[in-house]
């Protein structure tokens, strides 16, 4: 049920709508999931095009999910680094060892910072 009205909207508005859906979801979404979430008359290919464009702009990042990609918004430089660290951790099967090695290589300053962050959370 492709609605011609939605297809003809300015590209900026469509990008904003897709971006809002990604932020509202809070978890990575595939193009199909974004289409369902928006519930509007956008064709799936249109959604994929918009997501690819947003990815090229560096506004969203993506990770492999099944045969395609799942997209998530990039918050800022710091948020992106944290996300990348997570992706690297997830890639390795032996997560525990990786994490142990990672912590072992931390500088004293970083160790101090981590401790403060953990205490702040608790």
């Amino acid at each position: 049920m492709t609605d011609a009205k939605d297809e003809r909207r300015p590209a900026g508005e469509l990008e904003a709508a897709v971006m809002a859906a990604l932020w509202a979801a809070g978890v990575p979404l595939t193009a199909g999931q974004v289409q369902t979430e928006l519930g509007s008359g956008l064709a799936r290919t249109t959604v994929t095009t918009i997501l690819t464009r947003l990815h090229e702009k560096g506004v969203v990042d993506r990770e492999r999910q099944g045969r395609g990609y799942a997209y998530f918004p990039i918050q800022d430089a710091q948020g992106l680094t944290a996300r990348r660290m997570h992706t690297e951790l997830d890639r390795d099967i032996d997560r525990e060892t990786v994490l142990a090695r990672f912590v072992a290589q931390l500088s004293p300053d970083d160790e101090q910072l981590l401790r403060r962050l953990l205490e702040g959370d608790g």
Binding site: G12, E13, L14, E15, A16, M19, K57, V59
Partner: peptide, 13 residues
């Protein structure tokens, strides 16, 4: 201006 914008949308976490 510092945040990435999609179209005219700027999202603040």
């Amino acid at each position: 201006d510092h945040r990435p914008a999609a179209g005219d949308l700027c999202v603040v976490d």
